[in-house]
Amino acid sequence: MQPLLDAAALAPTLVSASIPSPDWSGFDIPLPWGSLRIHAYALCILAGIVVGLWLTSVRWAKRGAPEGSVWDIVIWAIPFGIIGGRLYHVVSSPDAYFGPGFDGTGDLSLIPQIQRGGLGIWGAVVLGAVGAWIGCRRSGVKLSAFVDAAAPGLLLAQAIGRWGNYFNQELFGGPTTLPWGLQIDANNPNFPAGMPADTLFHPTFLYESLWNLAGVLILLAMDRRFNFRRSRLFWLYAMYYTLGRVWIEAMRIDDAEQINILGITTRLNVWTSIFVFLAALAAFILLGLKGRPDPDTVYLAGREPEKVSGPDDGTVTDVRDPDHVVSDSDSRGNLPGNHSGSRHASDPTEEAAAAPSGSKPGADATAAGHSGSTATEPAPEAGTGK
């Protein structure tokens, strides 16, 4: 009896030290025909996208990518990623949409309602990569270079977007007595049936957000140290994220598809994380054996800019051959209609052909010599740059 009294006395202390449930989940914008609901979940996803894009654009520019190309790529990647994320969520948690055991009692109209929550990261990554590939091909840049630049930004976007689960009061873990336990409204449809109203739960959204923020710093530090290429930083991101996702996913108590492999039954996302980790590890090792790309450029073969201006010395550098520098004077010598310096010396045969009838080859030169003028030195051959 005494332990129960002690637990009852301790409960108010735990609740006061816990993470409170949110009392705000969005706002309404009045319209002539009604109102438009802006959900906090959507705002978190949007904020994550904006901040992640900022970091990606900074890193992409430092790689020497063409200005503005990041937006040409993400305009394809983001819609594809949202669609892929939603489809993966529907497949991995089908009961709400198709009913338990696909008995047809679900509500298919919920599938497009992403404001209610439910975006699976792996579907977002796979289809988002397809969209990024389309954008990269159209921009003439390598997908491998782009995903390396985007990996830390992607993890940062996930860290911010995960707070949408807090405002939706969803995807929390099992009961806990830890001081950072999460309060969930007892009348919330996600509150587990049969549990006391003051039960606290593991804030798995917070665990994953902090894990991802730490991962951003780790990826940036390792990329600065090793200067990864060939998409190796992206595969390192995949390994890091799945390593955390396995134990965080295992803590959740929401309904999810259960898969049995080798006699072990666990959530689909746990198995997915394990397989992605192994695939990412293999890709990271194999790509490392290939060494650095040569040339080390973000451009696809044949899509490099033709020429870029040199700093202040009036030279023009062909980026396809970085060692070949052409001076302005030589460049002008190659322009149509400009024949200065195009020959070493006049050909006597050509002089004879060009001389007026009755004149002798070299007569003009002889006359010039008699008048005291000096012969002009042959001009250097155009294009030598030396």
Rank of each mutant, 00 (worst) to 15 (best):
L217R: 04
R225N: 04
F234N: 03
E208K: 00
M195P: 02
L178W: 14
A256M: 12
F201Q: 02
M251Y: 06
G181D: 03
L210D: 10
A214T: 11
Q169Y: 03
P179Q: 07
Y207G: 01
T199V: 00
W211F: 14
L178Y: 10
Q183S: 07
V246E: 08
W180A: 02
W235N: 03
N168H: 04
Q183W: 01
D185F: 09
E170A: 07
D223V: 06
D254P: 12
A159C: 09
Y237F: 09
M251V: 14
R225S: 09
D198I: 08
V216W: 04
P175T: 04
P175A: 13
R162C: 11
A157S: 15
W163Q: 12
P203R: 00
F234Y: 09
T242A: 14
R162M: 07
R162H: 09
A250Y: 10
Q158Y: 09
R230W: 04
W235A: 05
M195C: 06
Y241I: 01
L236P: 00
R232T: 03
A193F: 11
W247S: 11
L219I: 07
G164W: 00
R225E: 08
L200V: 03
L233H: 11
N227D: 15
E208F: 03
I218M: 14
V246C: 02
L233I: 07
N227Y: 06
I253L: 10
G174F: 08
Y241C: 04
L233Q: 06
G173L: 11
I248N: 04
Y207M: 01
T204E: 03
T176I: 01
F191Q: 04
F172H: 01
W235Q: 04
N165L: 06
I253C: 10
A238G: 12
I218T: 15
A221I: 05
D198Y: 07
T177A: 14
L220I: 11
R224D: 13
S209K: 01
D185W: 11
M222T: 13
F172N: 02
D185M: 10
T242E: 14
I184L: 12
L220A: 02
E249A: 13
L171H: 09
I218C: 13
P196V: 00
L243A: 14
A193R: 12
D223Y: 01
W247T: 15
R229L: 09
I184N: 09
R230D: 13
N212F: 04
N165M: 02
W180L: 11
T242F: 06
L178N: 05
G244V: 13
Y241R: 01
P203S: 02
M239L: 15
R245G: 09
I253R: 13
I253G: 13
L236Q: 02
W180E: 04
L236M: 05
I248L: 05
T199H: 00
L171T: 11
L206W: 06
F167K: 00
D255H: 13
A197E: 10
L220Y: 06
E249V: 12
G194D: 03
G181I: 05
